[in-house]
Measured scan of single mutants.
Amino acid sequence: DVEPGKFYKGVVTRIEKYGAFINLNEQVRGLLRPRDMISLRLENLNVGDEIIVQAIDVRPEKREIDFKYIP
């Protein structure tokens, strides 16, 4: 289970104008929005990159997770 405030290693699987989709595993995916990136820009991410993200909002009923990147 993903818990708000905890850090997780994930893989960038898709990049859109509104953010990057990060997979923690095959069943768990969330969104990293540009506003939640500190010292990292969306255009510097590539599909396949491994990054450490912090879960900031977890909505299991909608199967949605918002992430934050903190270097």
Rank of each mutant, 00 (worst) to 15 (best):
V12N: 00
R41I: 10
E3K: 14
I22G: 00
K6N: 11
N44C: 13
A55R: 04
R63V: 07
D66E: 06
D57Q: 15
G10K: 00
P4L: 15
D1P: 15
N44G: 10
F67I: 03
G48S: 04
V11M: 11
G30V: 04
V58Q: 05
I38H: 14
R59H: 09
N46C: 12
K9V: 12
F7K: 06
E61S: 13
P71H: 09
D66T: 09
K62T: 11
S39V: 09
N44Y: 12
L32N: 01
G48D: 05
N23G: 09
Y8N: 00
K17W: 15
P4S: 11
R63M: 13
L32P: 01
S39R: 11
E26S: 15
G48L: 05
L45C: 02
E61V: 10
V11A: 05
A20H: 01
V2W: 06
I15T: 03
E16Y: 12
D49S: 05
N25W: 11
I22D: 00
I15R: 03
K6R: 11
I15S: 01
E64P: 03
R59G: 05
T13P: 00
P4I: 15
E16L: 12
K68G: 14
R29Y: 13
L45Y: 01
V47K: 05
M37Q: 03
G30F: 04
P71A: 10
V47L: 14
N25G: 11
N25E: 07
L45W: 02
I56K: 12
D57H: 14
L40V: 09
N25I: 04
P4K: 15
V12I: 13
G10V: 05
I22M: 01
L45S: 00
K9T: 10
L32Q: 01
I70P: 04
N25V: 05
V58K: 05
T13K: 07
E61C: 07
G30W: 03
Y18N: 05
V47I: 14
V47A: 05
G10R: 00
I38L: 12
F21N: 02
K62W: 08
G5D: 07
E3G: 06
M37F: 02
L40F: 05
I70F: 12
L42F: 09
Y18L: 06
Y8M: 02
L32E: 01
A55F: 04
M37E: 03
I15V: 10
P60W: 12
E61K: 11
K9Y: 12
I56V: 12
T13S: 13
V53M: 15
